[in-house]
Design a protein around this nucleic acid. Structure first.
Lengths: 205, 205
DNA sequence: GATATTTTGTAGCTATCGATACAGAAAGGA
DNA sequence: TCCTTTCTGTATCGATAGCTACAAAATATC
Protein backbone atom coordinates (compact mmCIF):
# COMPACT_ATOMS: atom_id res chain seq x y z
CA UNK A 1 0.00 0.00 0.00
CA UNK A 2 2.42 2.68 -1.14
CA UNK A 3 -0.13 5.34 -2.08
CA UNK A 4 -3.20 6.55 -0.23
CA UNK A 5 -5.19 9.72 -0.57
CA UNK A 6 -4.88 12.44 -3.15
CA UNK A 7 -1.56 12.29 -5.02
CA UNK A 8 0.73 15.34 -4.90
CA UNK A 9 0.21 17.77 -7.75
CA UNK A 10 3.86 18.72 -8.08
CA UNK A 11 7.25 17.06 -8.28
CA UNK A 12 9.11 17.49 -5.00
CA UNK A 13 12.58 17.38 -6.52
CA UNK A 14 11.92 19.94 -9.21
CA UNK A 15 10.13 22.22 -6.74
CA UNK A 16 13.17 21.97 -4.48
CA UNK A 17 15.40 22.84 -7.40
CA UNK A 18 13.35 25.97 -8.05
CA UNK A 19 13.57 26.91 -4.37
CA UNK A 20 17.33 26.43 -4.51
CA UNK A 21 17.57 28.93 -7.35
CA UNK A 22 15.58 31.50 -5.39
CA UNK A 23 17.75 31.10 -2.29
CA UNK A 24 20.85 31.17 -4.49
CA UNK A 25 19.79 34.43 -6.09
CA UNK A 26 18.31 36.29 -3.13
CA UNK A 27 19.82 34.71 -0.05
CA UNK A 28 17.88 33.22 2.83
CA UNK A 29 16.22 36.29 4.31
CA UNK A 30 15.45 38.10 1.09
CA UNK A 31 13.80 35.02 -0.36
CA UNK A 32 10.21 35.49 0.75
CA UNK A 33 7.61 32.77 0.96
CA UNK A 34 5.89 34.52 -1.92
CA UNK A 35 9.06 34.31 -4.03
CA UNK A 36 9.46 30.65 -3.15
CA UNK A 37 5.91 29.49 -3.70
CA UNK A 38 5.67 31.37 -6.99
CA UNK A 39 8.91 29.82 -8.30
CA UNK A 40 7.94 26.37 -7.05
CA UNK A 41 4.45 26.63 -8.53
CA UNK A 42 2.70 25.68 -5.31
CA UNK A 43 0.89 27.36 -2.41
CA UNK A 44 2.31 27.76 1.03
CA UNK A 45 0.35 24.92 2.68
CA UNK A 46 1.85 22.51 0.14
CA UNK A 47 5.30 23.91 0.85
CA UNK A 48 4.91 23.43 4.59
CA UNK A 49 3.45 19.97 4.18
CA UNK A 50 6.33 18.89 1.97
CA UNK A 51 9.28 20.64 3.62
CA UNK A 52 8.23 21.68 7.12
CA UNK A 53 9.44 25.27 7.27
CA UNK A 54 11.41 27.87 5.39
CA UNK A 55 14.52 26.90 7.32
CA UNK A 56 14.08 23.20 6.57
CA UNK A 57 13.46 23.96 2.91
CA UNK A 58 16.62 26.03 2.83
CA UNK A 59 18.69 23.26 4.35
CA UNK A 60 17.39 20.81 1.78
CA UNK A 61 18.20 23.35 -0.92
CA UNK A 62 21.75 23.68 0.39
CA UNK A 63 22.07 19.91 0.42
CA UNK A 64 20.89 19.78 -3.19
CA UNK A 65 23.26 22.59 -4.09
CA UNK A 66 26.24 20.77 -2.63
CA UNK A 67 25.25 17.55 -4.36
CA UNK A 68 24.76 19.10 -7.79
CA UNK A 69 26.50 22.46 -8.23
CA UNK A 70 29.18 22.22 -5.57
CA UNK A 71 30.32 18.70 -6.35
CA UNK A 72 31.55 19.77 -9.78
CA UNK A 73 33.99 22.07 -8.05
CA UNK A 74 35.23 19.97 -5.16
CA UNK A 75 34.96 16.36 -6.28
CA UNK A 76 38.25 16.60 -8.15
CA UNK A 77 40.20 17.26 -4.98
CA UNK A 78 40.43 13.56 -4.22
CA UNK A 79 40.84 12.28 -7.75
CA UNK A 80 43.40 14.73 -9.16
CA UNK A 81 46.86 13.15 -9.49
CA UNK A 82 48.64 15.86 -7.50
CA UNK A 83 47.67 18.45 -4.90
CA UNK A 84 48.71 21.15 -7.31
CA UNK A 85 46.41 19.79 -9.99
CA UNK A 86 43.62 19.45 -7.46
CA UNK A 87 43.81 23.09 -6.43
CA UNK A 88 44.28 24.40 -9.96
CA UNK A 89 41.22 22.41 -11.00
CA UNK A 90 39.16 23.76 -8.11
CA UNK A 91 39.97 27.34 -9.04
CA UNK A 92 39.46 26.84 -12.75
CA UNK A 93 36.17 24.98 -12.29
CA UNK A 94 35.07 27.68 -9.88
CA UNK A 95 35.67 30.36 -12.50
CA UNK A 96 33.56 28.42 -14.97
CA UNK A 97 30.78 27.45 -12.58
CA UNK A 98 30.42 31.01 -11.26
CA UNK A 99 29.91 32.47 -14.73
CA UNK A 100 27.41 30.16 -16.38
CA UNK A 101 24.81 32.27 -18.09
CA UNK A 102 21.82 30.27 -16.89
CA UNK A 103 22.63 30.21 -13.18
CA UNK A 104 23.04 32.78 -10.42
CA UNK A 105 26.63 33.95 -10.12
CA UNK A 106 28.81 32.93 -7.21
CA UNK A 107 28.26 30.33 -4.52
CA UNK A 108 25.03 29.87 -2.57
CA UNK A 109 26.96 28.72 0.49
CA UNK A 110 29.03 31.90 0.60
CA UNK A 111 26.38 34.41 -0.44
CA UNK A 112 23.11 33.21 1.09
CA UNK A 113 23.68 34.42 4.67
CA UNK A 114 27.16 35.78 5.33
CA UNK A 115 26.27 38.14 8.16
CA UNK A 116 26.01 35.38 10.74
CA UNK A 117 23.78 37.59 12.90
CA UNK A 118 20.12 38.46 12.85
CA UNK A 119 19.43 35.73 10.36
CA UNK A 120 18.36 32.29 11.48
CA UNK A 121 21.21 30.79 13.54
CA UNK A 122 20.63 27.28 12.22
CA UNK A 123 20.97 28.58 8.68
CA UNK A 124 24.19 30.42 9.45
CA UNK A 125 25.74 27.46 11.20
CA UNK A 126 24.85 25.07 8.41
CA UNK A 127 26.50 27.30 5.83
CA UNK A 128 29.53 27.94 8.00
CA UNK A 129 30.03 24.20 8.47
CA UNK A 130 29.97 23.66 4.73
CA UNK A 131 32.44 26.45 4.16
CA UNK A 132 34.82 24.99 6.69
CA UNK A 133 34.40 21.53 5.23
CA UNK A 134 36.16 22.80 2.11
CA UNK A 135 39.17 23.84 4.17
CA UNK A 136 39.41 20.44 5.84
CA UNK A 137 39.09 18.66 2.53
CA UNK A 138 41.90 20.70 0.98
CA UNK A 139 44.06 20.34 4.05
CA UNK A 140 43.71 16.56 3.99
CA UNK A 141 44.60 16.52 0.31
CA UNK A 142 47.74 18.54 0.97
CA UNK A 143 48.67 16.25 3.83
CA UNK A 144 48.29 13.32 1.49
CA UNK A 145 50.61 15.07 -0.96
CA UNK A 146 53.24 15.22 1.78
CA UNK A 147 52.86 11.49 2.38
CA UNK A 148 53.23 10.86 -1.34
CA UNK A 149 56.39 13.00 -1.50
CA UNK A 150 54.82 15.61 -3.76
CA UNK A 151 55.35 18.28 -1.11
CA UNK A 152 58.01 18.73 1.56
CA UNK A 153 57.11 17.72 5.08
CA UNK A 154 57.51 21.31 6.22
CA UNK A 155 54.48 22.41 4.15
CA UNK A 156 51.90 24.25 6.24
CA UNK A 157 48.87 22.44 4.90
CA UNK A 158 46.35 24.32 6.99
CA UNK A 159 47.63 27.76 6.00
CA UNK A 160 47.68 26.85 2.34
CA UNK A 161 44.22 25.32 2.49
CA UNK A 162 42.91 28.44 4.21
CA UNK A 163 44.56 30.62 1.63
CA UNK A 164 43.02 28.94 -1.40
CA UNK A 165 39.60 28.60 0.16
CA UNK A 166 39.68 32.28 1.09
CA UNK A 167 40.44 33.16 -2.50
CA UNK A 168 37.67 30.89 -3.69
CA UNK A 169 35.22 32.60 -1.35
CA UNK A 170 36.31 35.97 -2.65
CA UNK A 171 35.57 34.78 -6.16
CA UNK A 172 31.89 34.54 -5.17
CA UNK A 173 31.85 38.25 -4.42
CA UNK A 174 33.63 39.04 -7.67
CA UNK A 175 31.27 36.85 -9.66
CA UNK A 176 28.19 38.43 -8.08
CA UNK A 177 29.66 41.84 -8.88
CA UNK A 178 29.77 40.84 -12.53
CA UNK A 179 33.35 39.67 -13.09
CA UNK A 180 33.75 37.79 -16.37
CA UNK A 181 34.94 34.23 -16.68
CA UNK A 182 38.24 35.52 -18.09
CA UNK A 183 38.71 37.74 -15.06
CA UNK A 184 38.12 34.87 -12.67
CA UNK A 185 40.42 32.59 -14.63
CA UNK A 186 43.11 35.26 -14.51
CA UNK A 187 42.70 35.39 -10.74
CA UNK A 188 43.16 31.63 -10.60
CA UNK A 189 46.29 31.94 -12.72
CA UNK A 190 47.69 34.59 -10.41
CA UNK A 191 47.22 32.31 -7.43
CA UNK A 192 48.73 29.29 -9.13
CA UNK A 193 51.73 31.23 -10.37
CA UNK A 194 52.92 31.39 -6.77
CA UNK A 195 52.57 27.67 -6.13
CA UNK A 196 56.26 26.74 -6.10
CA UNK A 197 57.16 29.59 -3.79
CA UNK A 198 54.16 28.76 -1.61
CA UNK A 199 54.97 25.12 -0.98
CA UNK A 200 58.67 25.86 -0.60
CA UNK A 201 58.31 28.05 2.48
CA UNK A 202 56.95 27.35 5.93
CA UNK A 203 54.35 29.54 7.64
CA UNK A 204 54.65 29.14 11.38
CA UNK A 205 53.15 32.59 12.18
CA UNK B 1 20.82 82.99 13.64
CA UNK B 2 22.22 79.49 13.62
CA UNK B 3 19.82 77.92 16.11
CA UNK B 4 16.07 78.10 16.36
CA UNK B 5 13.56 75.88 18.03
CA UNK B 6 14.19 72.93 20.31
CA UNK B 7 17.79 71.71 20.12
CA UNK B 8 18.44 68.08 19.17
CA UNK B 9 18.71 65.74 22.12
CA UNK B 10 21.37 63.52 20.62
CA UNK B 11 24.70 63.80 18.83
CA UNK B 12 24.26 63.08 15.14
CA UNK B 13 27.79 61.76 14.60
CA UNK B 14 27.77 59.35 17.51
CA UNK B 15 24.29 58.13 16.59
CA UNK B 16 25.54 57.51 13.07
CA UNK B 17 28.48 55.59 14.48
CA UNK B 18 26.09 53.35 16.42
CA UNK B 19 24.02 52.79 13.30
CA UNK B 20 27.17 51.85 11.41
CA UNK B 21 27.93 49.16 13.96
CA UNK B 22 24.45 47.70 13.61
CA UNK B 23 24.66 47.60 9.80
CA UNK B 24 28.17 46.19 10.08
CA UNK B 25 27.01 43.39 12.32
CA UNK B 26 23.65 42.52 10.78
CA UNK B 27 23.79 43.76 7.20
CA UNK B 28 21.32 46.16 5.61
CA UNK B 29 18.16 44.06 5.55
CA UNK B 30 18.58 42.32 8.88
CA UNK B 31 19.18 45.61 10.64
CA UNK B 32 15.64 46.59 11.60
CA UNK B 33 14.49 50.06 12.49
CA UNK B 34 14.03 48.78 16.03
CA UNK B 35 17.66 47.59 16.12
CA UNK B 36 18.86 50.93 14.79
CA UNK B 37 16.81 53.24 16.99
CA UNK B 38 17.65 51.22 20.09
CA UNK B 39 21.40 51.34 19.34
CA UNK B 40 21.25 55.03 18.44
CA UNK B 41 19.27 55.90 21.54
CA UNK B 42 16.55 57.75 19.60
CA UNK B 43 13.03 57.15 18.28
CA UNK B 44 12.19 56.64 14.65
CA UNK B 45 10.85 60.18 14.00
CA UNK B 46 14.21 61.58 15.10
CA UNK B 47 15.99 59.11 12.85
CA UNK B 48 13.93 60.10 9.84
CA UNK B 49 14.25 63.82 10.59
CA UNK B 50 18.02 63.52 10.83
CA UNK B 51 18.81 61.00 8.08
CA UNK B 52 15.79 60.77 5.77
CA UNK B 53 15.36 57.02 5.41
CA UNK B 54 16.93 53.69 6.25
CA UNK B 55 18.68 53.68 2.89
CA UNK B 56 20.08 57.19 3.35
CA UNK B 57 21.20 56.32 6.87
CA UNK B 58 22.95 53.26 5.52
CA UNK B 59 24.77 55.23 2.85
CA UNK B 60 25.98 57.71 5.44
CA UNK B 61 27.08 54.79 7.59
CA UNK B 62 29.03 53.33 4.67
CA UNK B 63 30.63 56.70 4.07
CA UNK B 64 31.62 56.87 7.72
CA UNK B 65 32.93 53.32 7.58
CA UNK B 66 35.14 54.09 4.60
CA UNK B 67 36.41 57.24 6.24
CA UNK B 68 37.25 55.62 9.56
CA UNK B 69 37.61 51.84 9.39
CA UNK B 70 38.41 51.38 5.72
CA UNK B 71 40.96 54.14 5.41
CA UNK B 72 43.28 52.36 7.82
CA UNK B 73 43.47 49.52 5.33
CA UNK B 74 43.69 51.32 2.00
CA UNK B 75 45.37 54.65 2.72
CA UNK B 76 48.82 53.04 2.62
CA UNK B 77 48.42 52.06 -1.01
CA UNK B 78 49.54 55.49 -2.16
CA UNK B 79 52.16 56.16 0.49
CA UNK B 80 53.98 52.83 0.62
CA UNK B 81 57.39 53.00 -1.07
CA UNK B 82 56.77 50.06 -3.39
CA UNK B 83 53.74 48.30 -4.82
CA UNK B 84 54.82 45.17 -3.03
CA UNK B 85 54.93 46.96 0.30
CA UNK B 86 51.57 48.54 -0.43
CA UNK B 87 49.88 45.22 -1.02
CA UNK B 88 51.61 43.47 1.85
CA UNK B 89 50.47 46.30 4.12
CA UNK B 90 46.90 46.08 2.88
CA UNK B 91 46.73 42.37 3.61
CA UNK B 92 48.42 42.64 6.97
CA UNK B 93 46.32 45.59 8.10
CA UNK B 94 43.23 43.73 6.91
CA UNK B 95 44.10 40.77 9.10
CA UNK B 96 44.44 43.07 12.09
CA UNK B 97 41.39 45.21 11.40
CA UNK B 98 39.15 42.18 10.86
CA UNK B 99 40.04 40.64 14.22
CA UNK B 100 39.76 43.52 16.65
CA UNK B 101 37.91 42.33 19.68
CA UNK B 102 35.68 45.39 19.99
CA UNK B 103 34.41 45.53 16.42
CA UNK B 104 32.36 43.29 14.15
CA UNK B 105 34.56 40.95 12.16
CA UNK B 106 35.11 41.41 8.45
CA UNK B 107 34.22 44.29 6.17
CA UNK B 108 30.88 46.08 6.15
CA UNK B 109 31.21 46.77 2.43
CA UNK B 110 31.60 43.09 1.61
CA UNK B 111 29.18 41.62 4.13
CA UNK B 112 26.29 44.07 4.38
CA UNK B 113 24.44 43.13 1.17
CA UNK B 114 26.31 40.67 -1.03
CA UNK B 115 23.30 39.11 -2.73
CA UNK B 116 22.76 42.04 -5.08
CA UNK B 117 19.11 41.01 -5.51
CA UNK B 118 16.00 41.54 -3.48
CA UNK B 119 17.75 44.04 -1.30
CA UNK B 120 17.58 47.74 -2.05
CA UNK B 121 19.25 48.32 -5.46
CA UNK B 122 20.74 51.64 -4.40
CA UNK B 123 22.37 49.95 -1.44
CA UNK B 124 23.80 47.16 -3.57
CA UNK B 125 25.16 49.53 -6.18
CA UNK B 126 26.79 51.78 -3.60
CA UNK B 127 28.59 48.83 -2.02
CA UNK B 128 29.59 47.37 -5.37
CA UNK B 129 31.08 50.71 -6.43
CA UNK B 130 33.16 50.84 -3.28
CA UNK B 131 34.37 47.30 -3.78
CA UNK B 132 35.43 48.07 -7.31
CA UNK B 133 37.09 51.27 -6.22
CA UNK B 134 39.62 49.14 -4.35
CA UNK B 135 40.52 47.30 -7.54
CA UNK B 136 41.07 50.54 -9.45
CA UNK B 137 43.17 51.97 -6.65
CA UNK B 138 45.41 48.90 -6.58
CA UNK B 139 45.63 48.77 -10.34
CA UNK B 140 46.75 52.40 -10.51
CA UNK B 141 49.36 51.74 -7.85
CA UNK B 142 50.72 48.79 -9.82
CA UNK B 143 50.79 50.89 -12.98
CA UNK B 144 52.77 53.50 -11.10
CA UNK B 145 55.20 50.78 -10.05
CA UNK B 146 55.78 49.99 -13.71
CA UNK B 147 56.49 53.64 -14.41
CA UNK B 148 58.93 53.68 -11.49
CA UNK B 149 60.68 50.57 -12.81
CA UNK B 150 59.73 48.48 -9.80
CA UNK B 151 57.78 46.10 -12.04
CA UNK B 152 58.30 44.99 -15.64
CA UNK B 153 56.15 46.64 -18.26
CA UNK B 154 54.56 43.30 -19.06
CA UNK B 155 52.91 43.13 -15.63
CA UNK B 156 49.16 42.57 -15.86
CA UNK B 157 48.15 45.19 -13.33
CA UNK B 158 44.44 44.58 -13.59
CA UNK B 159 44.71 40.82 -13.08
CA UNK B 160 46.98 41.27 -10.09
CA UNK B 161 44.76 43.93 -8.57
CA UNK B 162 41.73 41.70 -9.03
CA UNK B 163 43.57 38.81 -7.48
CA UNK B 164 44.54 40.60 -4.27
CA UNK B 165 41.19 42.31 -3.86
CA UNK B 166 39.46 38.97 -4.31
CA UNK B 167 41.59 37.50 -1.57
CA UNK B 168 40.88 40.48 0.65
CA UNK B 169 37.15 40.04 0.12
CA UNK B 170 37.46 36.37 1.00
CA UNK B 171 39.13 37.37 4.24
CA UNK B 172 35.86 39.02 5.28
CA UNK B 173 34.09 35.68 5.05
CA UNK B 174 36.88 33.96 6.97
CA UNK B 175 36.87 36.63 9.65
CA UNK B 176 33.09 36.44 10.07
CA UNK B 177 33.42 32.68 10.34
CA UNK B 178 35.75 33.18 13.29
CA UNK B 179 39.24 32.91 11.78
CA UNK B 180 41.94 34.16 14.16
CA UNK B 181 44.32 36.99 13.44
CA UNK B 182 47.13 34.47 13.05
CA UNK B 183 45.12 32.55 10.47
CA UNK B 184 44.45 35.68 8.45
CA UNK B 185 48.08 36.77 8.67
CA UNK B 186 49.14 33.34 7.45
CA UNK B 187 46.81 33.75 4.48
CA UNK B 188 48.45 37.09 3.73
CA UNK B 189 51.88 35.45 3.95
CA UNK B 190 50.81 32.74 1.54
CA UNK B 191 49.72 35.33 -0.99
CA UNK B 192 52.86 37.41 -0.66
CA UNK B 193 55.14 34.40 -0.96
CA UNK B 194 54.13 34.20 -4.61
CA UNK B 195 54.88 37.85 -5.36
CA UNK B 196 58.06 37.39 -7.39
CA UNK B 197 56.52 34.67 -9.51
CA UNK B 198 53.38 36.74 -9.91
CA UNK B 199 54.97 39.90 -11.23
CA UNK B 200 57.37 37.92 -13.39
CA UNK B 201 54.71 36.34 -15.59
CA UNK B 202 52.12 37.86 -17.89
CA UNK B 203 48.42 37.03 -17.82
CA UNK B 204 47.05 37.86 -21.22
CA UNK B 205 44.36 35.16 -21.32
C1' DG C 1 5.19 86.78 28.38
C1' DA C 2 3.60 85.64 23.57
C1' DT C 3 4.77 83.61 19.18
C1' DA C 4 7.43 81.03 15.85
C1' DT C 5 10.32 77.14 15.07
C1' DT C 6 12.26 72.72 15.75
C1' DT C 7 12.58 68.21 18.22
C1' DT C 8 10.51 64.86 21.03
C1' DG C 9 7.71 60.68 22.41
C1' DT C 10 3.41 58.15 21.60
C1' DA C 11 0.75 55.85 18.86
C1' DG C 12 -0.52 54.04 14.74
C1' DC C 13 -0.31 53.62 9.55
C1' DT C 14 -0.08 50.12 5.48
C1' DA C 15 2.38 46.27 3.74
C1' DT C 16 4.48 42.11 4.13
C1' DC C 17 6.60 38.56 6.78
C1' DG C 18 6.44 33.28 8.00
C1' DA C 19 3.09 30.13 9.07
C1' DT C 20 -1.90 27.82 9.50
C1' DA C 21 -7.15 26.63 9.87
C1' DC C 22 -10.29 24.88 7.24
C1' DA C 23 -13.14 22.90 3.88
C1' DG C 24 -13.38 20.96 -0.67
C1' DA C 25 -11.09 17.86 -4.14
C1' DA C 26 -8.93 13.53 -5.52
C1' DA C 27 -7.26 9.21 -4.78
C1' DG C 28 -7.43 3.98 -2.52
C1' DG C 29 -9.72 0.44 0.39
C1' DA C 30 -13.94 -1.58 2.10
C1' DT D 1 -21.11 3.62 -2.68
C1' DC D 2 -19.15 5.08 1.49
C1' DC D 3 -15.17 5.98 4.32
C1' DT D 4 -10.47 7.12 5.12
C1' DT D 5 -6.51 9.43 3.72
C1' DT D 6 -3.89 12.90 1.53
C1' DC D 7 -3.35 17.07 -0.98
C1' DT D 8 -5.17 21.56 -2.75
C1' DG D 9 -6.64 26.45 -2.75
C1' DT D 10 -8.63 30.27 -0.08
C1' DA D 11 -8.44 33.05 3.36
C1' DT D 12 -6.30 34.52 7.28
C1' DC D 13 -3.48 34.50 11.55
C1' DG D 14 -0.29 37.40 14.81
C1' DA D 15 4.12 39.67 14.40
C1' DT D 16 6.98 42.78 12.49
C1' DA D 17 8.71 45.58 8.69
C1' DG D 18 9.59 50.67 7.29
C1' DC D 19 7.55 54.87 7.97
C1' DT D 20 4.66 58.97 9.58
C1' DA D 21 0.67 62.01 11.90
C1' DC D 22 0.18 64.54 15.72
C1' DA D 23 0.50 67.06 19.82
C1' DA D 24 3.41 68.16 23.77
C1' DA D 25 8.03 69.94 25.01
C1' DA D 26 11.91 72.98 24.47
C1' DT D 27 14.32 76.65 22.57
C1' DA D 28 14.93 81.53 20.01
C1' DT D 29 12.84 85.80 18.59
C1' DC D 30 9.81 89.59 19.36
Amino acid sequence: MPQRGRPPGFDRESALRQAMEVFWTKGFDNASLTDLTRAMGINSPSLYAAFGSKEALFKEAVELYSRTEGSGIWEQVETAPTARDAIAQVLRTTAEAFTRGDEPRGCLIVLAAPQMQGANPGVCDALKARRQHNVCQLERRLQRAINENELPASTDCRAIANYFVTLQHGMSIQARDGASRETLLAIADCAMSGWEALVGVSHEA
